[in-house]
Write a protein that binds this DNA or RNA. Structure first.
Length: 389
DNA sequence: AACAAGTACAACCGCACCCAA
DNA sequence: ATTGGGTGCGGTTGTACTTGT
């Protein structure tokens, strides 16, 4: 479709902003809000296009922006999130308070990427540059695949979260959405947060439709499931500030804590609650925001291998109360957890690792471990002191 | 002091998505 | 279903600043 030009009008100024322009923009927004960016320049008396004004505001003038050098923790977070998310700067930025995606992107391109390259680590894959052959030449491909699944899962989840942050003003509709979901879609699985705040593992309750007890039969041992995030589906329930991913759950990441066995039926699990509930604990993946709703479509045929009549179930997660910075804290404060993210064996202390935990403690996992350790060690050491930098 | 090379970062560009008309 | 405005996002460029020679 055609697009009307934004910034190529004759007479519109480009290039660096002057203090006077900044002042005009600030004064206008403080008084009126930005409203329509396209109309703003005229109203504010600026010879700029609306897009330029928006960028100047969001990346520089906004009062809630923190400027200056990145801390070591911020660097760690960027590196680790980049390993998971790639160049999804906006998603990464949601975990760095007061930093803009643009700033993070620039910092990555000018500092961190070069550091990793000097370390002999591919800044794109976050693997040692000679690791590709190693990992594909032997039986580690499955582990690589599992790692990839986790990264995709985390990527999808964080992306969803980023959307939620952006759409936080719609949060107040979450409750009605959940109600709507459960009342209008009988095939809806509603995940209701049940975690305690401060925990680094978000604990979710999954509320199965009472008419379908057969869905209880979740095969947590599947080692072939994959996770695919399909951004094209983001319009499903989008009006409810939800993000949607087509998720085929990585079983190793899930642990039932409410009912002792995944094969338990509703009856076996007890009927104290109105409906049968299972509890999912996303160990080591505990980032949630207050009162946000995430909706994901679950390909029942693969993710829930034994599900019967549900091709797709919609999972709405009201992920409340957990520590908003849980994931960041996890990354920064618990290197073991970081390793567990990277080594694919979710729960070095857990035996529910599906196929990935095949017990052989693969060299690949060790490599990943060493990689994360090397990143952390290098980042932790002062750049000015390190000969590498 | 002058110049070149390297670095950092603000700003721009274009595409994609969402949504209302 | 189509169109077009508004906006978000990631990649790239331009320029000011710093460092080295």
């Amino acid at each position: 479709m055609g697009r009307s030009p934004c910034c190529d009008k004759v007479g519109l100024k480009k290039g660096p902003w002057t203090p006077e322009e900044d002042q005009k923009l600030l004064a206008y927004i403080e008084e009126h809000g930005h409203g329509s960016w396209r109309a703003l320049p005229t109203k504010a008396g600026l010879q700029r296009c609306g897009k330029s004004c928006r960028l100047r505001w969001t990346n520089y003038l906004r009062p809630d922006i923190k400027r200056g050098k990145f801390s070591l923790q911020e660097e760690q977070t960027i590196i680790q999130l980049h390993a998971l998310l790639g160049n999804r700067w906006s998603a990464i930025a949601t975990h760095l308070p007061k930093r803009t995606d643009n700033e993070i992107k620039n910092y990555w391109n000018t500092h961190l990427k070069k550091r990793l390259a000097k370390m002999g680590i591919d800044p794109v894959t976050h693997k040692p540059k000679n690791d590709t052959l190693l990992s594909s030449a032997d039986g580690h491909s499955k582990n690589v695949s599992n790692l990839s699944h986790m990264a995709q899962w985390e990527s999808a989840r964080l992306e969803a979260e980023a959307r939620l942050v952006r759409e936080s003003k719609l949060r107040s509709h979450s409750s009605s959405l959940l109600h709507q979901l459960t009342t209008t879609n009988p095939n809806t699985y509603v995940l209701v947060n049940s975690s305690s705040s401060g925990s680094t593992s978000a604990q979710l309750q999954i509320k199965w439709p009472s008419s379908n007890p057969s869905n209880n039969n979740i095969d947590l041992e599947s080692s072939t499931s994959t996770l695919n995030y399909n951004s094209d589906q983001t319009n499903v329930n989008n009006a409810s500030s939800s993000a949607v991913g087509s998720a085929i759950m990585k079983p190793a990441m899930i642990e039932f804590v409410g009912c002792s066995g995944s094969s338990e039926t509703k009856e076996e699990c007890g009927d104290k609650e109105e409906d049968w509930k299972s509890h999912l604990s996303f160990t080591s993946l505990g980032l949630v925001h207050d009162h946000q709703t995430i909706t994901m479509s679950m390909d029942a045929g693969s993710a829930w291998p034994t599900a019967t009549d549900h091709q797709v179930g919609y999972v709405a997660a009201d992920m409340a109360a957990a520590d908003q910075e849980g994931f960041t804290n996890l990354l920064l404060n618990n290197s073991d957890e970081v390793q567990s993210l990277s080594d694919g064996d979710h729960g070095g202390d857990s035996d529910n690792g599906g196929g990935s935990g095949s017990g052989s403690g693969s060299d690949y996992y060790e490599d990943n471990k060493h990689y994360w350790n090397s990143i952390l060690n290098l980042v932790n050491s002062s750049p000015s002191e390190s000969p590498l930098f």
